[in-house]
Design a protein around this nucleic acid. Structure first.
Lengths: 110, 110
DNA sequence: TTTTTCGTCAACCGTTTGGTTAAGTGTTGT
DNA sequence: ACAACACTTAACCAAACGGTTGACGAAAAA
């Protein structure tokens, strides 16, 4: 019923999930460590991670009792392609991203 | 409460709204004409257009009794920047977009 | 072995979403 | 003046969302 692109964009529409993705950009993390900086329950974060997994934006691998979360950048390609088509086909540079990340973290990450 | 990026991604998460954007890529359109190809009420399309407007993805200008809808590609820039950062910074080309649009229309557009 | 840690699941709750139909507001054409 | 057209709004509905708490299973540590 719902297309991959639906799930990708829906997953990205939540600031908590975007913050999680930004965290995972730095390193793979365990669920508990992902949850630590947020002011919400572990169960809530677990749900967010399920949504991100369903959207293909991350993968989760269980080793022992710890479940490791890993960014999967490829899932963003289709969505990115769709968006760029409306965005005048400008190439993106890292500086713009860094500035954006700072802004995002300044407001959203605890 | 909700950030611009939230609204942008949420607006893009619905296939009807993405199809509307693709239609508007070709030309400005009146609300009734936007609604024509879809199997849902005019009121429903009107709501979708409100959501797209709130997200800044389109603008609506009333001339007489007709309300014209116009694509606003700039609103996608911030979101696009965010996404590209996770997508290995690959430049996007038009061929990929065309292929994607065809696939999208084949499945989603009535 | 017992206890703590890691994480999910189930049930619940209030809000939002995506759709419907019906009524209402302007604008245009006859 | 009146009818048709172009939309929007209101009220309603079922389903999904985003969060909670509490119970639970599996793995690790004591």
């Amino acid at each position: 019923m719902s297309e991959p692109l639906d799930n990708t964009f829906a997953a990205l529409s939540d600031p908590t999930r975007r913050a999680i993705l930004a965290m995972l950009l730095e390193d793979d993390m365990a669920v508990t460590d992902v949850a630590e900086p947020f002011e919400m329950s572990l169960a809530a974060i677990s749900k967010h991670l399920t949504i991100l997994t369903r959207a293909g934006l991350i993968s989760q691998e269980k080793r022992g009792r710890v479940k490791w979360c890993k960014l999967e950048p490829d899932a963003l390609k289709a969505a990115s392609t769709w968006m760029q088509s409306f965005g005048q086909f400008e190439p993106v540079n890292l500086d713009a991203f860094e500035a954006f990340l700072n802004a995002e973290f300044g407001r959203e990450a605890p």
